[in-house]
Design a protein around this nucleic acid. Sequence first.
DNA 1: GGACGATGATACCGGTCGGTAACATGCCAA
DNA 2: TTGGCATGTTACCGACCGGTATCATCGTCC
Lengths: 203, 203
Amino acid sequence: MITASTGIQTDSSVETAPRPSARDRIFAAARDLFYRQGIRAVGVDSIAQEAGATKMSLYRAFESKDELVAECLKQSEREAWLWWEATTGPHKGDPRAALLAIFDSLALKAKTCEKRGCAIGNAAVELTDDAHPARAVVVAYNREKRRRLRALCKALGARDHEMLADGLQLLMDGAYLSRLSLGASGPNASLRRAAESLIDSQT
Amino acid sequence: MITASTGIQTDSSVETAPRPSARDRIFAAARDLFYRQGIRAVGVDSIAQEAGATKMSLYRAFESKDELVAECLKQSEREAWLWWEATTGPHKGDPRAALLAIFDSLALKAKTCEKRGCAIGNAAVELTDDAHPARAVVVAYNREKRRRLRALCKALGARDHEMLADGLQLLMDGAYLSRLSLGASGPNASLRRAAESLIDSQT
DNA sequence: GGACGATGATACCGGTCGGTAACATGCCAA
DNA sequence: TTGGCATGTTACCGACCGGTATCATCGTCC
């Protein structure tokens, strides 16, 4: 992989933002288009055009469209864990508060941004070929999510902490999927309260 | 729409099944391929080939691929409500048993067939264009599912029956989505118990 | 026998798909 | 000044996309 330019700065008096590298622009455009329109619905030509770059620059920076998709999902995963830690961090010794903070933030994001659900979850639907390089990312992400939820539910002292963790993960995934058809005022509207009920029923 | 042949029978001594009409074969092949490989991943040529028919027969029976997709989803919806009634029917005066029967059946199907989740839910992910004729089917289906769940939860006498219904719908949708990456041994394994916990917490 | 409806066969259309080759340009650093 | 290196430009490739036109064939029913 070509190492991306990491923002060279001209020290002119007026702070003019340097144009990101073609790779970075293509990467950003790809993530945006894939998320909004779907992976299969977006061609490499439209990615290059949206990035203000050319298809050649795309193929100089990424091996193939499939690899570009995998890279995009890896970035989504990184950001997801950053969000996770930022959300649960303030509630270190209080697993119940940490869990509720996750669902609070989730519900908020459903209302404001992320109307197209979860990029990784959507990829699980769109990419049916097991050989696709992005499938490994999808599976790893969901496994890790399960592991983290279990750890929180165990720390919570839940009666059946594995069942509770699974139930919460189903609620999260369901929120992503449901949002695509009924929006934030569909079942998503009850996401946080349902999670709270389930947690309370196990503690 | 062309009226499909409804199974003309030759009265020969040996009961030989008459070949279904081209329309029926194409319809069946389309549903199967769309479900297993995804809507956008399947071209009209492969549908015709899989059906042992020609592309012309496809376009004589259906206006376009998009309309074919919509018809397939409508059929999935019909079958879903048949399943719903067959599953809840035996528990007419017992909403709790009816709800649990739904989740029991859901968990069973996750283990045996339906490894690719919900055809309608998947379509919600794949079809991002609001103008697509199948989107109306997706939205109508999920609305009706919500209505039915609410009715059951109200009959159950749940404290917050709307929240409970939403929570159960999120669990169902989450089960479909989660199954695509972690299979039946992922969070799906706890689907029924999570649903039961949530129900009990509200009654 | 003859007409008709359903189906097959084949060739075709313009457009887009993912991906590549060859060459030009422009900018920064040594 | 002179390289490189990143990038743009253009043209191209074979394959497939959804969709159509034309004509041949087959079985069935009157």
